[in-house]
């Protein structure tokens, strides 16, 4: 039985993990390598690095961070932010990422998803969709995909765009509700279910996690294959171990945190 996943997201800027609400007021919360490893020990099923460095130097730092992380992290690592071409994807994969997420790059050149899937396998290609509700959207009221950290609207209606990303070769969708990001009132379940029901690739719900019941609802009502969270963990409000315990209590078959076996590292 496939286990519903809990994914921890780290926003990385110039080699440090930062956290803000609605992409403003950034605070330094630690070293990405150390934090990623700590979350693996807590029982996280995957880690995502979202690079929000604006500068060229920041990109070089990111590859170094990924390299150092891959040497000590033994759960999957997805890296995104500023990926435009299959060369960018290759650089991140060779540095040690298992999957690469693409956002603005796919809007500009949707075929990059196809080329990435052909070269590296679709399981490496994650389409990142930042959804914001617009009462007066280009095609009427609805959720529209946003680029540039959620600041720039596009005319792409989210469910349609998700379908196109899947058709073009993406192996997974990371769906963030920009309306809920950082506010901790729960995932946008309506949005998540609309996308999860429309595509036949896995969907990760993101944006809005504040407590364990939100994760449960993401799986049971949002039909998400995985849930992503960040702030409540970085702030020390709870731990992955605690969240998994609560989910188990509700009958959600998450992967047990501590397994028999044990490596030798």
């Amino acid at each position: 039985m496939l286990r519903p996943r809990i994914i921890v997201c780290l926003d990385v800027q110039d080699g440090r993990v930062v956290k803000g609400t609605n992409f403003v007021e950034l605070r330094d919360v630690g070293d990405p390598v150390e934090l990623a490893r700590r979350y693996e020990e807590e029982g996280a099923d995957e880690v995502v690095f979202l690079d929000i460095s604006a500068s060229h130097e920041g990109r070089g730092t990111l590859l170094d961070t990924v390299r150092r992380t891959a040497e000590v992290l033994f759960i999957p690592l997805t890296v995104g932010g500023g990926v435009r071409s299959e060369d960018d994807m290759n650089a991140l994969l060779r540095a040690g990422a298992d999957k690469v997420s693409v956002n603005s790059g796919a809007v500009r050149d949707p075929d990059v998803l196809t080329r990435g899937a052909r070269l590296f396998g679709s399981q490496c290609v994650v389409a990142s969709i930042d959804a914001r509700w617009m009462d007066e959207g280009p095609g009427g009221p609805g959720w529209y995909h946003h680029t540039h950290g959620g600041r720039r609207p596009t005319d792409l209606e989210v469910v349609e765009w998700a379908r196109e990303c899947a058709r073009r070769g993406a192996g997974e969708i990371l769906l963030t509700s920009m309306d809920r990001d950082g506010v901790r009132t729960g995932y946008d379940l309506e949005l998540t279910a609309a996308v999860a029901d429309a595509v036949d690739i896995p969907v990760i719900a993101s944006g809005g996690a504040g407590e364990a019941s939100h994760l449960r609802d993401g799986f049971t009502q949002g039909n998400a294959d995985a849930v992503l969270l960040a702030g409540i963990l970085h702030d020390g409000l709870t731990t992955v171990t605690e969240l998994k315990g609560a989910l188990e209590g509700w009958g959600i078959p998450v992967r047990p945190g501590a397994q028999a076996g044990g490596g030798s590292r």
Partner: peptide, 26 residues
Amino acid sequence: TVPQMGWNDVEAGEMDDPLFRGLPQM
């Protein structure tokens, strides 16, 4: 839903193979 993405149980069979030593419920 394809790809299969995530953690899945590895179910018995010849789990006494030395490859799975110490890993009865992987």
